[in-house]
């Protein structure tokens, strides 16, 4: 038998991800359970904790305050800084503490996403700093971080257009789905994983974060993003509920 034939046979006998269903038995459109809370860090102007499945991110906001260093202040708008930090023991193989190339890039894309939601022109020459700590990582940490950061910014009383939900949509083998877990990101059968984190501003109908790793057709990508937007709208509801319940319950 030729090598090609063996491969074909293997493909035939293997059930596709769509056929076997997701590892954690979720539906394609179903997100992992989420928990959110705000205002638990007394020193911060605003703070939030977000748990998406087994991924936990906390975010703390300082400011608006004097921009530092002074030469970086923007004369006509807010200087937004965003720091993403993966806690060393948040992942199975210890991450080296401190900034990495990955954390620097993520800080930047998260900042770009969040900035779209903020009325930066209201805060000339000042600075807001957003600090994110990923405490436990099981994929989707940048999306959990954006949710936490957006809640923390709102908790800090920064003027914003809307709260910003985020989710990783994508495709595992042949199944287009949302909110990938680490186990799914590591699923390399068939076409393997495609991870597409998005952030979305619901009342502006804008996508503010978009990245992709993997292989996916144009049609499947459009389908995945649409599915992601539906998921974001659900997350958005829970974000609002989190803020309301803090002030309504008492």
């Amino acid at each position: 038998m030729t090598a090609k034939k063996t491969e074909e046979k293997k493909t035939e006998s293997r059930k596709s991800y769509k056929a076997t269903g997701r590892i954690d038995k979720r539906k394609a459109t179903e997100m992992r359970p989420m928990e959110m809370s705000i205002g638990f860090l007394p020193n911060c102007a605003g703070s939030a904790r977000v748990k998406v499945g087994n991924t936990i991110a906390i975010a703390g906001v300082y400011g608006p305050k004097k921009a530092r260093p002074k030469h970086e202040e923007l004369k006509d708008k807010l200087l937004l800084r965003c720091y993403y930090d993966l806690v060393s023991f948040s992942v199975p193989d210890r991450a080296r503490p401190g900034p990495s190339r990955r954390s620097t890039e993520l800080g930047m894309v998260i900042k770009s996403a969040l900035e779209r939601s903020i009325f930066t022109e209201f805060y000339p020459r000042s600075m807001v700093e957003v600090f994110i700590e990923v405490v436990q990582a099981d994929a989707g940490s940048r999306c959990a971080s954006i949710i936490a950061a957006s809640l923390a910014l709102a908790d800090a009383g920064i003027e914003m257009r809307d709260l910003m939900p985020a989710v990783a949509c994508g495709k595992i083998d042949d199944l287009v789905c949302v909110d990938l877990t680490k186990a799914e990101e590591d699923y390399h059968e068939g076409e393997g994983p495609t991870d597409i984190p998005i952030a979305y501003l619901p009342n502006q109908d804008e996508i503010t974060l978009l990245q992709l790793d993997g292989k996916i057709s144009k049609e499947e990508l459009a389908q995945a993003i649409k599915m992601g937007i539906v998921a974001c709208k659900e997350i958005h509801k829970q974000m609002k509920q989190t803020i309301r319940s803090k002030y309504e319950k008492r």
Binding site: N43, I58, A59, G60, Y62, Y83, P99, E129, F131, E133
Partner: peptide, 11 residues
């Protein structure tokens, strides 16, 4: 960690 205090700086 700079999240802990306005006076702590990243780096």
């Amino acid at each position: 960690t700079p999240i802990a205090d306005d006076l702590f700086e990243p780096g």
